[in-house]
Every structure is written in structure tokens, then in C-alpha cells.
Design a protein around this nucleic acid. Structure first.
Lengths: 108, 108
DNA sequence: ACCACCTGTCAGAAAAATCTTACAAGGTTA
DNA sequence: TAACCTTGTAAGATTTTTCTGACAGGTGGT
């Protein structure tokens, strides 16, 4: 089971990258897109985008759904999920209390 | 000059680390402390804490002030600044527009 | 002088994140 | 068949972040 602190940490790590901020921007502004198209829009390689998208999806900030286009091609569409994270000294301190210990034998 | 996107990115990177979340927690819960004392509380080495504190301070999330104790010793006290960052798809997309380009010859 | 604190910083190791290149496979169209 | 689009992934290099250990200096007390 993942604690609130661990989930906050994962979300922060997912957002703390310029490419991933731009990915959110592109999906939020232009709406849902598939991977190759998004790679062209942002201007990065597709394998690299794939890595960033996985990080965002693992953190629960975006979702993907495989769809078939009219021509029968399988396109993987991504869209932003409606997250809402408030960062204040109090909320951070509160979440930090439930962080997993740094020991080696603790992660689930 | 640092854009809103760059400042958000710096804040996110500063918070995206378990040690630094714990630092915020300790300072917020127990109030202001000096470096060596904080290192003992959290259980990390002083040079390592120094590194994390610098990152938090660069991002504008904590401040430090050198003070003289009653015994005349110079103690460097840290405290949390009252930050308030809201993370939503809209706010992130908005900030991402002002991110510095990834080119090599752009940082000021 | 010595010990016990405090401060900072530097060099190098270790770990994690990032990025590129190349491969493998599917479908559609000519 | 070949060309063009899509998908994923794996290996290896590069870069960044994290961490340790050692050093240097300050003050106060024994």
C-alpha cells in the first residue's frame, strides 16, 4: 500500500521536469493525442516521450487508451487527469509524516 | 530573469525528494533550528543536509539567518517560508508556456 | 593544549535519471 | 513486396543528482 507521502513524492517527481510540464501543457491545450503525434508537437524522440509518459501515468496524472483509427491503425491516446495538489508548509509536513522509511527492506 | 515556469520547476525539483520533505516537516513541526541540530533530528550527515538545504533555499522555500547563541557560538538557523503552490492541469499548462527553451545558450 | 561544539566546502564515489540508437512487430496502401 | 504509418522495448552512453569522507576554520570550556 502506498502512503499519502509516497504518492505526493511520486507526483512531484513526475512534474519536476521541463519535458513533462510541456507534455501536460500540450495535452491540456490541444486535447488528447496519440504518442507519435505528441512527439512531433513537442519535438522530442518517441522513445524519450514514451519514458516521460510512463512516469506521468504511473503518478496518476495522465491516462492512456488504445483506440483504433478509421484506417484501422492502433493509436495510443493520452489525456490529462484532473489532478489538484496543494503545496503549503502544512500540507507538505502532513504528507511527509507518512513517507516510507529509507531502509532497503521496506518498499511494497 | 527567471520565468514563472522556471520558478515552478525549481520549486517542484526542490520538493521532489524524501529528505527535503522531511526537512520541511521538521522545520514546520518543531520550529526553526540550526543545521547541526537538524541533521541529528533527521538522521543524515551534515554535509548532505547542507546540500538539501541549499536546494530548498535556492527555490525560496526556506530561509536561513546566522545568529549568535548566548555562549557566543554562530548558529545558522533555518525556517520555512510560507509558500503556497497550486498544481492543477490548468496552472501547470499555464506555467509551462514560460519555460526556458532547452537550448544550451539560453540560461541567464 | 585539548576537547567539544559550531560553521562551510571540496573531491570523488555511487546511484538515479535522462537520452539516443537500434531493434521487433503490427496494420494499410501502392 | 515495399513503403509508410503506428506501437513497444531493450542496451548503452551521457548527464545529473545524491552521498560520503576529509579538510579547514571559528568559539568556548577544562
Amino acid at each position: 500500500m502506498k502512503s499519502e507521502g509516497d504518492r505526493l513524492l511520486e507526483s512531484l517527481a513526475a512534474l519536476a521536469n521541463p519535458h513533462r510540464l510541456r507534455i501536460i501543457e500540450a495535452l491540456q491545450t490541444n486535447g488528447r493525442t496519440y504518442v507519435s503525434q505528441l512527439a512531433r508537437e513537442i519535438g522530442i524522440s518517441r522513445p524519450l516521450l514514451h519514458l516521460h509518459l510512463r512516469k506521468l501515468e504511473d503518478a496518476g496524472l495522465v491516462t492512456s487508451r488504445l483506440e483504433l483509427s478509421d484506417e484501422g491503425k492502433a493509436l495510443n491516446f493520452y489525456e490529462v487527469l484532473p489532478f489538484d495538489i496543494a503545496l503549503t508548509p502544512t500540507s507538505v509536513a502532513d504528507a511527509a509524516q507518512s513517507l516510507s522509511p529509507p531502509s532497503k527492506t521496506s518498499e511494497a
